[in-house]
Design a binder for these strands. Sequence first.
DNA 1: TGATAAGCGGAGGCATCCTCCGTATGTTTC
DNA 2: GAAACATACGGAGGATGCCTCCGCTTATCA
Lengths: 199, 199
Amino acid sequence: MSEEEEGQPEGARARRPRADSLRNRERLLAAARALFADGGPDASLEAVARRAGFGIGTLYRHFPTREALFLAVYQREADELVALAERLRDHEDPLDALRLWLRASVGMVATKKGMLAVLAPAAGAADALYADTRPRLIDALGALLRRAVDMGRARDDVGPEDVLRALYGFCHMGGEAHWRASALRLLNVFVDGLRPAAP
Amino acid sequence: MSEEEEGQPEGARARRPRADSLRNRERLLAAARALFADGGPDASLEAVARRAGFGIGTLYRHFPTREALFLAVYQREADELVALAERLRDHEDPLDALRLWLRASVGMVATKKGMLAVLAPAAGAADALYADTRPRLIDALGALLRRAVDMGRARDDVGPEDVLRALYGFCHMGGEAHWRASALRLLNVFVDGLRPAAP
DNA sequence: TGATAAGCGGAGGCATCCTCCGTATGTTTC
DNA sequence: GAAACATACGGAGGATGCCTCCGCTTATCA
């Protein structure tokens, strides 16, 4: 009775996952990220498996749906952005730190763009994803921004939400092939604009 | 030399398209609209052909790519909205006319939502589409709005661009299954809000 | 009422999706 | 360290979709 609770009792009696399995999951994730990034969200799942060096069956066991794979990739990228923000806290020039972080973020938006289209049908999945991730990103960005403001290197009339919105806006402009380069240029201009107005 | 100009000379020597062909194109378009509307933009093209009662080859001759089909459907819907606005010019209650038009527009956004994702890769196609369609919609909406303002039934501090933006905003909220119903509710509230403030 | 250009159908080649199960390999226990 | 067991892997295979190609049908024009 107390032996078969929902997803293991307390000090559960479940074997820990096999080490190779974890390694493999990691390799699949890396391959997926690479392919989604430049092949778009319609990249073939078989191609992902092949690139990672596995059979298609393996991919499907780890990620039973395309959506599950997307979610995992996106979460992972968000984690890394949060970690990056952490590291950048000690960067000499706080405005430069902000710039670096935003540039890194462009990559994540590249993933997310495709995801929105793919996740939409699965009502709720996208929301759950956002609800979890967005505040963490706002926090991370907010810390970088606040530091820049406190050190007198950035104006204080924009919040992290505004910056994030601007970032997405830059990335969504048109369907151009070079949107990425364009977004990075715009970002540069924007960060320059964040400098406090010379009195 | 003057015989083979770009797309026929003047009083060109081209047979007019076969009557059945035009009819069939129409049926294909109707089927496509229906399937895209509730099946999303990934609806199978074979399903479209089947629903229209044709072989797949016929669909491909009329619309050589999925994108071409989308464009045709979207243009058509825009045409109808413009025509609808025309008809509503004489509607008794101008604010009600506006409401009716906006409700009809929700249907079109349903199509466009999917299109954005699909057209994005084909750099420029989406832009060309917008460049052509948007101003016509703004005009149509502008006429309805102006009339309501002139007759003292609507406040005068919002333009057609604002209303259109609001409309899109309502439709893009979340990935919910019931977004359509939700959008219609929000629209109602919005139009009520357009009434001039009671003095 | 032919002659002929235009349109139609759908088989077929190729790609992808996803499932299923026999084989292989980590993990645990003694 | 070896047997026993639970897990993970591979990839064939059936289903579906994309798109092309070409022989047959039909509307139009003289």
